[in-house]
Design a protein around this nucleic acid. Structure first.
Lengths: 158, 158
DNA sequence: GTTATTGCAAACCATTTGCAAGTGT
DNA sequence: ACACTTGCAAATGGTTTGCAATAAC
């Protein structure tokens, strides 16, 4: 069985709900899956506004589509580095968690099977039916934590 | 060295910032530490409004105080079961994480040292200076997942 | 043709903020 | 006295929604 492409998965999802794959939704999903990186609603709104097709998609429609994409299992919210939620692909990508830099806002992904296993065990012990988890580690990334770098380092050589 | 009470810890914190322990802040911290349970800003607002002393504390002041209590290390945000953030005591309580029931909104605490250890290791590997973490497990708790209980079970015995 | 979807602008909701009056040290 | 804090009401900012026009099936 070949894996469905995101858009086909979405089409399938919409069909089971009696909803429609509109031009706007196609544009949105195309932008969302153009690259595998984290994004927030606002960023997506500007990306679909400057869309090559010249067609604009309203903010409201983007928000409505994001909700559907989450429901469909194509996206998931993973963090809120600066207040607003950040999404990432949740279709065809392995489970992972994030280190969140409080200075630059960067998300660093990591995977760890042991954590997942422990979470499973804890759920079992509590008769808790897990649907997912989110592990966010806060702190400062290596880059931001580097010693105050000499500015204009090249000048030292002059 | 005896542990400071929350209010003493707060007083100390305020002093180092050149800020004051006002009546309003005292009322708030008393309410916050009256019992060890999760709460959100809105709940706290109503609790300090129906305060026994008859004195009201405004919503703005509660929000300002919550921010200070977090800064002081007395409170931490732990989850957002229904959108709004939930606080809990973070002074004198051991590190733990939560199972979050999507039906009843309950938070079930659990502790696991292995998870903390793994998180430490991952941070080290990434030269990430950790300040804290938050592990939220989503799903349905045992209570909500129970088979639709016969209503009025006692009637069976009649 | 019927029903879902869009864009707009207004509504929402939690949280934050400016400011004048009040309070802690 | 002085600087910090309060309450109020208005502002904010991200997200949602009612509705008439429009598009998918």
């Amino acid at each position: 069985m070949g894996e469905l492409s995101p858009i086909d998965k979405f089409r399938e999802f919409l069909q089971t709900k009696g909803e429609r794959l509109t031009r706007e939704r196609s544009i949105i999903i195309e932008e969302v899956f153009a690259e595998h990186e984290h994004f927030d609603a606002d960023t997506l709104v500007s990306r679909v506004s400057s869309n090559k097709s010249g067609r604009r998609v309203s903010r409201a429609t983007v928000y409505r589509a994001l909700k559907l994409l989450e429901e469909a299992g194509l996206l998931r919210k993973v963090a809120r580095p600066n207040g607003s939620e950040v999404y990432e692909h949740d279709y065809g990508y392995p489970q992972h968690d994030h280190l969140i830099c409080s200075k630059c806002g960067d998300l660093i992904e990591f995977t760890n099977e042991v954590i997942s296993a422990i979470v499973e065990k804890i759920c079992a012990e509590n008769s808790f039916i897990k649907s997912g988890h989110r592990l966010e580690v806060y702190g400062v990334c290596a880059k931001c934590n580097a010693p105050p770098q000499r500015r204009h380092r090249k000048l030292d050589l002059v």
